[in-house]
C-alpha cells in the first residue's frame, strides 16, 4: 500500500480542517485513512479521458429571486441571538483572533 498520508501531513490536514486530533486516536485514524485512500485507487482503472466532471443536479435552469431580507419575524433574530454562548449588546462575543 502506497503511503499518501503520514503523521506529518495528517497534522497539517487536521489543522486546515480546524480539528484537534486526540493523540491516542492518531494511529487508528492514520490506518483508516490509508485504507480508504488506497481503496480510491480503484478509480484509476476507469477511462475518463473524454468525460466532463459532473457536479450533481438533474435539471439545470436559472434560479433567481429578489435579494431581499427574508427574516420572517423579529423573534427569529432574538432566538438566534439568545442561542449565543456569550454576547455584547446583540453581537456574538468570541475570544480574540490574536490572543495568546
Amino acid at each position: 500500500m502506497r503511503e499518501i498520508i503520514n503523521k506529518k501531513n495528517l497534522e497539517k490536514l487536521a489543522h486546515l480542517s480546524r480539528i484537534e486530533i486526540d493523540k491516542g486516536k492518531e494511529e487508528k485514524l492514520l490506518k483508516d485513512l490509508g485504507e480508504i485512500i488506497n481503496y480510491f485507487e480503484e478509480l484509476k482503472g476507469v477511462d475518463t479521458s473524454k468525460t466532463e466532471p459532473m457536479n450533481g443536479g438533474v435539471l439545470f435552469s436559472n434560479a433567481i429571486r429578489y435579494d431581499e431580507s427574508e427574516t420572517k419575524c423579529e423573534s427569529q433574530n432574538a432566538d438566534l441571538i439568545s442561542a449565543f454562548s456569550d454576547k455584547k449588546d446583540n453581537y456574538l462575543k468570541v475570544p480574540g483572533v490574536f490572543g495568546e
Binding site: 480546524r18 475570544p95 490572543g99
Partner: peptide, 23 residues
C-alpha cells in the same frame, strides 16, 4: 460557538475552533 453553548473558550479564536471541533 454558533448554534451551541460554548464551554470551551480558549485563549484565542483558532484554539477555540480546534478544541470545539476536535472534542
Amino acid at each position: 460557538i454558533r448554534y451551541a453553548q460554548n464551554n470551551n473558550q480558549q485563549s484565542n479564536l483558532l484554539h477555540t475552533y480546534l478544541k470545539n471541533r476536535g472534542e
